[in-house]
Amino acid sequence: MLHLIKKDIVIHKFSWIIYFALLVFFVALDKDVIFIIALISAIITMDAFYADDQANGHTLWNALPFTRSEVVSARYASLLVFTVISMGTVILVELIFKWDWEPSLWKEVIGSFILMVLSGALCFPIFYWLSSQRKVIFVLLILYILLVIAGTYAFYYLYLYLSESQIVPRTLSDGQLFGFAILTALCLYTLSWRLSIKIYRNREIV
């Protein structure tokens, strides 16, 4: 399975330079950290799905000595890897650009992780369900990116609402709140992973 994750990284090849340039561009524009991490991670994920689709990757990787569970699991792991790479790079670039790191930015970094996990949990089963129709996959992937962008704003306003409503701050600290959110998101991610495996096992690879 590690090999399939490596494949998801390698197939982007020179696109990594474009992703990095995009990331630097958004940092230079002073866009929110949560937005940059989520957008770049979503683009890399979208590109991985799209490259597989273009290269008949479903046929190739399922004819090689892998099980369908491994193929799906690797993609779920790859999303986490892409997100962590984006998180690390954004932190680094922010530090280089601004020589400063506001403590509150950690919330955005963790928020982006939660957002990516949730959006993956929601969208991946749909991709595995519908992506056998090749014309549909491109539209789905664009919708996925739009969902992630919308998610960054939803996340921001939800956090603002929870902070201002005083309900959560009275019972939970920020650390507890984010810890709880990460745990919930990972639980949903696990459920989604199991569902995707079930969908993909029954899929006809034509």
Partner: peptide, 15 residues
Amino acid sequence: RIGFVFNDDMLYGEL
């Protein structure tokens, strides 16, 4: 134990 060849193109063009 299987080697396969399909009629479809199954290679990543960028690689």
